[in-house]
Design a protein around this nucleic acid. Structure first.
Lengths: 215, 215
DNA sequence: CGACCTGTTGATTCTGCTCAATCAACGTGG
DNA sequence: CCACGTTGATTGAGCAGAATCAACAGGTCG
């Protein structure tokens, strides 16, 4: 696997979600477990219960349909919590995208600061609803723009966006094909909106233009 | 407006979500407010806070983008709770679809059974994630099939599905156009999968076939 | 009755998918 | 060191599904 030189740790994350620190303090979380690239954190059908805290790296939450189509519902980076489930079985599965460090938080069935949990759950809901709008009512260009801006914001807003995931993951997150992802990046490049320094390293030249596409 | 003869009340709902009754009991909710067809329950930008409980009728949760495209993130029927927001402003707006009775629940900032709230929020999250899969990885036929089965289940699973919303709402929920909705219903009719008793009254002839489309 | 709204249907266009070839990066083994 | 296979990314050609544009039908309400 690749070890990127610029791992963002939870402590260093500028946009550390409010609530997560309280939760961490209150829950005396377990040690960090390292999941190499592609490793399964929990599988579809596994018993749900504990929540997970991303210490570094990136995690993808996916669902696979019977005929093999995959939808990635979210990516989670350092400082974020995932693992909420409506039933006692995981309807989705979680995998490490690029080598990720994850802490297990104590089972949600005990006495816990449910206030913080509620906050985190509602925030997840908001993100997901947002993404619904992207998948339901935006074309491929706009979807890609939304992802770039999202990643950019989560990475501190600098000019360079690092894509921890590969084209296939981006495609399954945006509900398009990986060929289309490739074409759109080329298109953005030709319009001088981005520059491709490496396959997973993108410089945003025209932030405005991207933002306009998401209006 | 239309007053449908078969209003489903919260008390009569067979699939009343666990957690909501506890919440109702604990929160001494306000009286039922009636919102006629199309009435706004809260607007985008309004201050968020209270939750809402659907007593009868149907509510839609929407977001409008700058260029006028609308995405309906969810419909809520009798017995369901809506109004969760990640920030203190509503990112979405809620409207009555067909004349709905709604109770305001006490503000979430007080001392409350956050356990029940968490359960409801997580359930909303699950539903939304489910819908993500539909919008991201299914074609128009499959989306329609998913909606029909969803409504069918929420209405008790009988042969007749009642569509409280019009074609436009279905389209904006499924991320397609209303013309396509119309065509697909015609297509399902021609395949003897459904029968159209009225414009908003559909009989499911081949439940199996619909289920297969959602596999 | 006419205006209007919702829904249906048809013709055409276009976005994004499918299929396929090519390329670059990387690892392996002779 | 180089030939080979593998994997991920890019690009092209043709096609399909759904959007767009447009016409029309049926019902409701003033």
């Amino acid at each position: 696997m690749h070890i990127h030189s610029t791992f963002r740790t939870a402590a260093a994350a500028a946009n550390l979600p409010v609530g997560a620190p309280d939760l961490l303090a209150a829950m005396q979380p377990a040690a960090v477990t390292f999941y190499p690239e592609g490793a399964v954190i929990y599988a579809q059908g596994d018993q749900a219960g504990p929540l997970y805290f991303v210490e570094f790296g990136t995690v993808r939450i996916c669902r696979m349909s019977a005929d093999g189509r995959r939808q990635i519902t979210s990516f989670h980076v350092a400082g974020e919590v995932f693992g909420f489930e409506a039933t006692d079985e995981h309807d989705f599965y979680a995998e490490s995208v690029d080598g990720a460090g994850v802490r297990v938080l104590r089972s949600t069935s005990g006495t816990q600061p449910t206030g913080s949990l509620l906050l985190l759950a509602v925030r997840s809901l908001g993100r997901t609803q947002n993404h619904l709008m992207v998948l339901g009512r935006r074309n491929a260009n706009e979807r890609m723009a939304a992802l770039l801006l999202d990643l950019n914001e989560r990475q501190g807003g600098g000019a360079i966006v690092h894509l921890p995931m590969q084209r296939n993951d981006i495609a399954d997150y945006l509900g398009i094909t990986f060929e289309t992802v490739s074409r759109i990046l080329r298109c953005l490049k030709d319009q001088h909106i981005v520059r491709l320094h490496a396959v997973n390293e993108i410089e945003i030249l025209d932030h405005e233009a991207l933002a306009d596409m998401c209006a």
